[in-house]
Design a protein around this nucleic acid. Structure first.
Length: 277
DNA sequence: ACCCAGGGGCAAG
DNA sequence: CTTGCCCATGGG
């Protein structure tokens, strides 16, 4: 297999694939194997270069968002000690440009699940309902059409629980053309968010995940239990509501709020430290 | 048995 | 706009 080297300054491949924004990549001694949509890809990092299969340069540069202006992102970080520690520790993580449906569906069934379990469900759905991919033992993420035509019981066998009905119903609304994820790209973020939240099982948090990790709305902040803990510690209000924390992040973190959020999320989980503790 | 996890949805104030 | 309450399930 011929390889190509992409210039990748300010890039941490392992951190990027390990920080809780994507759930199907596997690492073996520095080599990362996964899929970008329906393309099998094996990549690794050598210093400031990302080594990718020849012919996938454009695909990989786009997926790994090697064009994101990390210098500007870092300048926009809050000045407090905790945020700066998170920046130091998480430096090089990039917010991916993920396929729309795969990303939305994955975060749809992420609710009240731990990260390793989300991974497990992603693998099961791919194995059972996904199309085979040439050169990969991992199947593509199943299409909305495929998931819409399954019955709920089959989905529940993938450990989806109560999320099975929501996933199937949402897949149905997309499969029958009621909502076109691709054509929503042109909408301003608030309208786009509203359309996503009209889907069964998609509230503000999951909509913000899709906005950030797939639609490249880098100012979107998904507030989960971890971000809530971090923000509560940061502002010294242990009982602040989720809604007030959402407002705080939206108003204080600026145009790259989603990046700040991701760095805080990864730092809190990796270091097991919270602000003010 | 108990606790937690990258929540959603609704009613009521 | 906000708070309160119930829904839900697999893994540690």
């Amino acid at each position: 297999m011929k390889l190509a080297a992409l210039p990748a300054p300010d890039f941490d491949l392992a951190g990027t694939l390990n920080c809780g924004q994507v759930f199907h990549w596997t690492e073996t001694s520095g080599e990362w194997t996964g899929l970008i949509g329906t393309r099998a890809v094996r990549v690794h990092q050598e210093g400031a270069s990302l080594i990718v299969p020849a012919g996938t340069e454009t695909l990989c540069a786009n997926y790994f968002a090697l064009d994101h202006p990390l210098r500007s992102v870092y300048r926009s970080f809050p000045r407090d000690a905790y945020s700066q520690a998170a920046l130091k520790r998480s430096r090089g993580i990039r917010i991916l440009r993920q396929p729309l449906w795969e990303c939305l569906a994955t975060f749809l069934f992420s609710s009240m699940k731990q990260v390793p379990h989300i991974r497990q469900i992603s693998f099961k759905l791919r194995e059972r309902f996904g199309e085979p991919v040439r050169g990969s033992s991992l199947n593509a993420f199943p299409s909305p059409e495929r998931l819409a035509e399954t019955n709920e019981a089959a989905l529940r066998e993938c450990a989806l629980g109560f999320r099975a009905a929501n996933l199937r119903a949402t897949a149905g609304r997309i499969a029958n053309g009621d909502l076109n994820l691709e054509s929503l790209r042109s909408l301003p973020t608030p309208e786009l968010r509203a359309h996503l939240m009209s889907l069964p099982g998609v509230g503000e948090k999951i909509a913000n995940c899709a906005l950030l990790f797939a639609y490249e709305r880098l100012d979107s902040v998904p507030v989960d239990v971890w971000i809530a803990r971090i923000l509560r510690g940061m502002i010294g209000q242990p009982t602040a509501s989720l809604a007030s924390l959402q407002l705080y992040a939206d108003n204080q973190f600026g145009r790259y709020a989603g990046y700040i959020q991701q760095y805080l999320f990864h730092y809190a989980r990796a270091s097991r430290e919270l602000p003010g503790c």
